[in-house]
Amino acid sequence: MNLSERLTTDRVAAPSQRAARDSLRSQIARLERELAGLVAAGFPHISAAGHRVAVGEREDSPRARPAPRLPGIEDLERERDALVGRLRDTEVAVAQRELHERRARALLQEMELEPARHKFMRLRVADLGGRGCGVYEVRPRLGLIGMLAGWWRLTLSSGCPLGRGRALSARPASLSSPRDRSRSFGSASRAASRACSRASAAGGR
């Protein structure tokens, strides 16, 4: 029995208004649990944000929380229908995601078996369903020599870039001024390399 049939059966079976509301509440509970399961299993590729953002409203704009109440049958039906819609959307998103990952895994297998046919092709680990910033890439062995000789191989990058550069953290704290510390990784390492070249030039003199 599919979902809409189950819901229809529940609705027809309700003999009175209160029983109908109870039935709707149990449907809402079941749908909410199914949805929560899908969202949690699909993290981070399936969106957890379910509410619709109204026209002219920003996603992060503050909104007044509606006061809790005892919803009537119409409200509960609306809530149930909205959840059914969200569940369907999420199921579609999960299916699309699974297809995407299956294709990515097939491509990775091809890249591994025939790297020369996929020169410089990159594939993110996230596309395979993994977490982190790793990237598979088909690269030549020994750089230019490998390119000329046709020696291609599949490599995996080491992951996410560091939050701050090693050059900056290796410097003693006493040497780095607050201004230095507030610079980005790039400018700080440039400053460090300038200081190194000045020191080596002075040593050479």
Partner: peptide, 29 residues
Amino acid sequence: GAKAIALRREPVPSAYRVFFRHIGLDPDA
């Protein structure tokens, strides 16, 4: 982040989510 999302599957937080929907509140909003 992963734990924050997985929380909605745990029994007690899940019960409060369901109850929110029963009293007209959307727990995602």
